[in-house]
Design a binder for these strands. Structure first.
Ligand SMILES: [Zn+2]
Ligand SMILES: [Zn+2]
Ligand SMILES: [Zn+2]
Ligand SMILES: [Zn+2]
Lengths: 154, 154
DNA sequence: CAATTGATGAGACAAGGTCTTATATTTGTG
DNA sequence: CACAAATATAAGACCTTGTCTCATCAATTG
């Protein structure tokens, strides 16, 4: 079934992230703690700059170096996905269990990012991944076009 | 059928591109002409920097501003696709008719970019595009993993 | 608490991409 | 074939994003 996501985000991601990083031998520092908390509250992706600004605004400021370093740790631990939506913009979002796996619609006009998921598509991607000269670790799908709002007042 | 691309690239793309730009009211300048010629000779994607260097080396140098401006024109005319493969690298490639349509495998380790195509996947993407709250103009699929060369000497 | 080791912040740095502006080309017209 | 008008281009300043280094700070350990 194809559907846009309307459910609220699960909240246990923060715990899972902290645990897994602890197991990987990381200490718990303030910057990391706050960034994880912020990410856990997101349902879809934010850019590094947006994350840093949100931190400074809502909790306490964290240096750019820390933001990128922690995102990289999280990415390596497969807790965060890096999403490139075009125009050189890179966004990051928490990876949730099977249920939360999704792909993205991007409006070429206003830049809006809309998550969606589809089981048939996933099956097809798995099938293709088997037939390809690469050991596939992950996949990205982006559908680009014009969103409802933009088509209207065009 | 899933397969890596082995055929040689079609060559009529340059004509099509020139025509369409002319129709859109653009004059024919040297920089544009050369960039189109270079792109037409490619089977897969190159970065802006690679394009500029190839131009300087093989034909005549073209300024960075021109490379980006022309790529943007071509992109708007749906003659060129922008492909973001990760690590902030953006590449550009000519869009060809049905036959040349393809997606990409990216090696997370060495960065190699391998084109592939699959009819079943295309059908599935079309199906999904109908069911989504966006008028879909194009789609991208990227499979990431480790290429044969990198898995070997790991 | 002291020592050790990892975490963080600040800013220098690099690369990729955008914007401005002066100059060069193209195109239409007399 | 000039010439004027309009577009295309080159060069480089500039901005944004992301990386790297290093000095400082905080968590852990005994
Ligand atoms: Zn998302
Ligand atoms: Zn929109
Ligand atoms: Zn390609
Ligand atoms: Zn490789």
């Amino acid at each position: 079934m194809t559907h846009a996501h309307d459910e609220t985000a699960p909240v246990d991601w923060a715990e899972r992230a902290s645990e897994r990083l602890a197991l990987a031998g990381y200490r718990r520092g303030g910057a990391r703690h706050n960034l994880i908390r912020l990410l856990a509250a997101q349902r879809c992706a934010l850019s590094a700059a947006e994350l840093q600004e949100a931190l400074a605004h809502e909790q306490r400021s964290v240096s750019r170096a820390s933001v990128y370093r922690i995102l990289e740790e999280l990415e390596r631990a497969e807790l965060v996905a890096r999403i490139e939506v075009g125009q050189g913009i890179v966004r990051f979002e928490p990876i949730r269990h099977g249920a939360g796996h999704h792909h993205h619609l991007v409006c070429d006009h206003c830049g809006r990012l809309i998550p969606f998921s589809d089981e048939g598509l996933e099956r097809e991607l798995e099938r293709v991944s088997e037939r390809v000269p690469l050991v596939v670790a992950e996949h990205d799908v982006i559908l680009r076009g014009e969103c409802a709002a933009c088509s209207e007042h065009a």
